[in-house]
Design a protein around this nucleic acid. Structure first.
Length: 559
RNA sequence: GCCCCCUUCGUCUAGUGGCCCAGGACGUCGGAUUCUCAGUCCGAUAACACCGGUUCGACUCCGGUAGGGGGUACCA
């Protein structure tokens, strides 16, 4: 069933009725959370979930909590957490409570809350909502296989359920060990009013007696999740759609424990480019076959290679946030793009500042269908946000890349900064990512390498071209002051006396000065390079032409 | 298999019964501008998954089908 926006917004308030009817200060409080498991990287889909939680909390003046789901991995948690914490901070998704921030309800690591879970299990057991089960894994598997053979749905027979101390003693005498299972009702329905999907109905008959505690006493995700959400007073559980099917068992635990039910909002998946399958970090090879994805990767790879960042590293992957941070994307652009991946304000507004997002975000305008990740559109947002940056900020963003690539030393001179500022200004919209500054390396080299293809394109007749360049070198000292405007004027005068097409001269000079066929405007290039580099680069080029005549044949028709 | 969710241009989306022979953005393709590239400007292209029903009228409501996705763990 679908809901009108009005119905939906009414739903928003009636949903978490246990809280809103309390008339306590809690009723107006919004608390959301993002609960990553420490995997060592921040997935772009995870960021979107975190972002929506954060936006929702900020909009309502509530709190955004970061909790670490490390029930499964005790080792290297801190190390695996680092990229996640750094990534979130870089994107400006700050948490009010959680790791490195603390908070009144800590600890914020599941691995440090085990006693809480144990208590909950006890309570479940005491209330008759769970039971000790002594079946072995093999026995369960056998039942499952039998069900499959008979083409009926598997449901555990509860053959080794122990509800009395006597039962327990009997099974234990056989050397069996107990897990704790949920005692799911045999029939009946469960309705969930999802803030995004509307009303969703489940049949208890389709649920399993899920295990909540292992034989060794450790507990499982769903139990921990529910207990933590309650302990942290989470009012709105906003998470990916993959959890929708798991919600019944969580609601079961919620009710069995007598907790108030939080509001649920299940977000559509972030899918692969051009598909509706969940975007995965592990399928880089597959995505690289997608032209747009490959282009983004390649763009980043070039930058990374120049700054000595390992491009074969696991985290160097456009599915992972680290990629964008490494090559110099703007957090604002990523946030803007991701906000729109599954949500829209209206039929035209696309460009949002963080503040605007906080003001206009709403759960009831979140879409239901999976949204595929479009590298191209992300890039478009990056371009737009970068364009709007003040010159000074562009310069500050770009400088570290020149330093990392070894074009500038760690201690910057005023002249360095001025030069970079001039390049950034002349580059205009050519710089889209901070790392793009590295495509203007010619300004930082005493002898820029000459691109053979560029050279071939610019050369017509080597001897005449050399002659032309020599003549131009005679003119250079007369360019006073040595600036773009005067350079342009002299060059036009020069072109008319030489009787060569202006475009040809420009092309030739560009290669002579920079070694490339593409670059900034020629006059600006000349000005930034300065008087001496102008003459020496041209002389080096002439030398190159004279040395390797075989390379300098005029290009043929089919070139 | 069973359960749940989803379905508007290639992609992100607007659309809450007549405003829609469907609007915006990215892309793509043309064209203009410039010394290259980027940008900018102008134009074009392209979608309501399908079948029934309800209604004077359906992208919008209902039913079904198909397709896609998720779940079904002593993973999270």
């Amino acid at each position: 069933m679908t809901w009108s926006p009005r119905e939906k917004s009414q739903l928003k308030y009636s949903l978490h009725s246990p809280l809103s009817t309390l008339h306590s200060p809690l009723s107006t409080m919004v608390r959301t959370r993002f609960a990553p498991s420490p995997t060592g990287y921040l997935h772009i889909g995870g960021v979107r979930t975190a972002l929506y939680n954060w936006l929702f909390a900020r909009q309502h003046g509530g709190q955004f909590i970061l909790r670490i789901d490390d029930t499964d991995r005790q080792r290297n948690v801190q190390q695996s957490l680092r990229p996640i914490l750094d990534g979130l901070r870089w994107l400006g998704i700050e948490w009010d409570e959680g790791p490195e921030v603390g908070g009144p309800l800590g600890p914020y690591y599941q691995s440090q809350r085990l006693d809480r879970y144990r208590n909950a299990v006890e309570k479940l057991l005491a209330g008759g909502h769970a039971y000790y089960d002594y079946a072995t894994t093999e026995e369960i598997q056998a039942e499952r296989a039998a069900a499959e053979r008979e083409k009926r749905m598997f449901r555990y027979s509860r053959r080794f359920m122990a509800e009395t101390p006597a039962d327990r003693a009997r099974f234990e005498a056989e050397g069996r060990q107990a897990v704790v299972r949920l005692k799911i009702p045999a029939e009946g329905k469960l309705t969930i009013d999802d803030a995004i999907r509307g009303r969703v109905e489940f049949d208890w008959a389709n649920e399993q007696d899920h295990v909540v505690q292992r034989a060794d006493g450790t507990c499982l995700y769903h139990l921990a999740n529910v207990v933590d959400d309650h302990d942290f007073q989470i009012t709105h559980v906003i998470r990916a759609e993959e959890h929708l099917s798991n919600t019944p068992r969580q609601v079961f635990i919620v009710e069995a424990l007598g907790y108030p039910r939080p509001a649920y909002a299940h977000l559509p998946l972030v899918a692969e480019p051009g598909s509706h399958t969940k975007l995965s970090k592990r399928k880089l090879d597959k995505y690289l076959k997608n032209r747009d994805f490959a282009e983004l990767f390649e763009h980043g790879r070039k930058i990374a290679a120049l700054i000595g960042h390992p491009v074969e590293a696991d985290a160097f992957n456009p599915v992972i946030v680290d990629f964008y941070q490494t090559v110099g994307f703007l957090p604002e652009a990523i946030v803007n793009y991701l906000a729109l991946l599954g949500w829209a304000l209206d039929d035209k507004t696309e460009h949002f500042s963080r503040k605007e997002l906080i003001e206009s975000f709403s759960l009831d305008r979140v879409n239901k269908a999976p949204a595929s990740f479009d590298p191209r559109k992300l890039m478009a947002f990056e371009e737009r946000h970068f364009q709007q940056l003040p010159q000074e900020e562009k310069v500050s963003m770009v400088l570290p890349y020149l330093q990392k690539a070894g074009f500038l030393s760690d201690t910057l001179t005023v002249a360095d900064r001025a030069k970079v500022a001039a390049i950034v200004k002349a580059a205009g919209d050519r710089i889209k990512i901070a790392g793009d500054i590295l495509s203007f390396s010619e300004f930082f080299m005493t002898k820029p390498p000459i691109d053979p293809v560029a050279k071939k394109k610019a050369i017509h007749k080597p001897t005449e071209d050399i002659e032309l360049l020599k003549n131009w070198c005679q003119v250079i000292p007369t360019i006073q002051p040595f600036e773009a405007a005067t350079y342009e004027k002299r060059l036009h005068e020069f072109a008319s006396t030489e009787e060569r097409r202006f475009g040809d001269i420009v092309r030739l000079l560009r290669v002579a000065l920079t070694g490339k066929s593409i670059g900034l405007g020629l006059y600006e290039t000349a000005e930034i390079l300065g008087y001496s580099a102008n003459t020496t680069n041209i002389q080096l080029f002439i030398f190159d032409l004279a040395q390797k005549p075989e390379d300098n044949l005029p290009r043929s028709e089919d070139d």
